Deep mutational scan, measured.
Amino acid sequence: NKFNKELQWATWEILNLPNLNEEQVKAFIDSLKDDPSQSANLLAEAKKLNDAQA
């Protein structure tokens, strides 16, 4: 289903952001699991944090 694909993509993207630490990655992944419908928003937040920590 649509959410599953978005969830998988967002998870992969977050796991490959170079500037997030392990705790941050885990928090984002946990949030994705809690509410897959928010995957696009969570991914945007993760990318923002990644850029801020570059």
Rank of each mutant, 00 (worst) to 15 (best):
N41M: 11
A40F: 11
L15P: 02
L17I: 01
N4F: 07
V25T: 13
K5I: 08
A10I: 14
K2V: 15
K26Y: 08
D51Y: 09
N50M: 01
P18A: 09
L7G: 06
F28P: 00
L17E: 00
S31N: 11
L43W: 04
E45I: 09
A54K: 04
Q53S: 06
D34E: 13
D35P: 01
W12G: 11
L15I: 12
N19Q: 05
D30S: 10
A44I: 12
I14H: 01
L32T: 02
K48T: 09
A10F: 15
D34A: 13
K2M: 15
I29F: 05
A10G: 03
S37Q: 09
A27E: 12
L15G: 06
D30G: 15
E6V: 06
F28E: 00
N16M: 13
L43D: 01
L7E: 08
K47V: 08
A46I: 02
A40K: 14
A44R: 12
K48Q: 13
F3A: 06
L43A: 05
L42V: 15
K33Y: 14
I14P: 01
W9Q: 15
I14A: 02
T11I: 15
N19W: 11
S39P: 04
E13N: 05
Q38T: 05
L32V: 05
L43E: 01
K2Y: 05
D34N: 13
Q8P: 02
S39D: 03
S39K: 11
V25P: 00
Q53G: 04
E6M: 04
N50E: 01
K48M: 07
N41K: 14
S31Y: 07
N50Q: 02
K47H: 10
N16Q: 13
S37D: 05
L7N: 04
A54Q: 12
D30I: 11
W9N: 06
E13R: 03
D34S: 14
N4R: 03
F3Q: 05
P18R: 07
T11A: 06
P18T: 11
A10L: 09
K2G: 15
S39F: 15
A10D: 03
N50S: 14
S37V: 05
S39A: 14
D30W: 10
D30K: 11
E23K: 09
K47T: 10
A10W: 07
D51P: 01
E6R: 01
D51G: 06
S31L: 09
S37G: 08
P18Y: 06
A44M: 13
L7M: 12
K33L: 14
I29G: 01
I29H: 04
K33G: 07
D35I: 04
D34G: 14
F28H: 01
V25I: 13
P36W: 05
I14R: 01
E6I: 05
K47N: 08
Q8M: 10
A54W: 08
L17G: 00
K48Y: 07
V25N: 02
A54L: 09
S39G: 07
L15R: 07
D30A: 14
F28G: 00
Q8I: 10
K26N: 05
S37N: 09
L42Q: 04
K26R: 11
N16E: 05
N16H: 13
Q38G: 10
L43N: 01
E13S: 07
L17Y: 05
E13M: 07
D30V: 12
K47F: 09
A10Y: 14
Q8K: 11
E45S: 07
E45N: 07
D51E: 13
A46P: 00
F28N: 00
K33R: 12
Q24T: 03
L42F: 09
I29S: 03
L15D: 03
A44W: 10
L42S: 03
L15Y: 08
K5V: 12
Q38K: 14
S31M: 12
E6D: 07
W9A: 15
F28A: 02
A40L: 14
A54H: 14
K47Y: 15
E45P: 00
A40H: 10
L20R: 00
F3T: 04
I14T: 01
T11E: 08
W9P: 02
P36D: 03
A44Q: 10
L32W: 02
N1Y: 00
I14L: 10
K48W: 05
A27Q: 13
K48E: 10
E22H: 14
N21T: 12
K5P: 15
N1L: 04
I14Y: 01
N1D: 15
P36Q: 04
L17H: 03
S31R: 14
L20S: 00
K47R: 03
L42R: 05
W12R: 08
L42G: 01
Q24E: 04
N41T: 14
W12T: 15
L32G: 01
L20V: 02
A10M: 07
K48N: 13
K48P: 01
L20G: 00
A46M: 02
Q38D: 11
W12Q: 15
N19F: 12
L20P: 00
T11Y: 11
K26W: 08
V25D: 00
D35L: 06
D30T: 13
S37R: 07
L49T: 07
N50K: 01
T11N: 05
E45M: 13
S37A: 12
A52K: 07
K33F: 11
P36E: 03
E45Q: 13
F3Y: 10
D30Q: 12
L17D: 00
N16W: 04
T11M: 14
N21Q: 09
K2N: 15
A52T: 11
L32D: 00
N16R: 10
V25R: 15
N16K: 12
F28Q: 00
Q53F: 07
N4V: 04
L49G: 00
N41L: 08
A44P: 01
D34Q: 14
K48G: 04
N19S: 09
L32I: 07
L15F: 08
D35G: 04
K5F: 06
Q38S: 11
A46D: 00
I29Y: 03
L49F: 05
A54P: 07
K5S: 12
A44V: 12
S39Q: 06
A52S: 13
S37I: 04
L32R: 00
K26L: 11
L43P: 00
D34V: 15
N50Y: 01
I14F: 03
K33V: 10
E23N: 10
L43F: 05
N21V: 09
D35T: 08
Q53I: 09
W12D: 15
F28R: 00
A27V: 10
A44N: 13
N1T: 04
K26S: 07
D34F: 11
N1E: 07
D51H: 10
E6T: 04
E6W: 11
K33A: 09
S31V: 08
Q8F: 06
N41D: 11
Q24R: 01
K5T: 13
Q24V: 04
A10R: 02
E13T: 11
F3D: 12
E6S: 02
Q8T: 07
L20H: 00
L43V: 13
L15Q: 15
E23Q: 14
L49Q: 09
L17F: 07
P36F: 09
N1R: 00
L43H: 03
I29P: 00
A27M: 13
A27G: 12
S37E: 07
A46Q: 01
N41A: 13
W9F: 12
Q8N: 04
D51T: 07
N1H: 05
K5G: 08
F3K: 02
E23V: 12
W12I: 07
E23W: 14
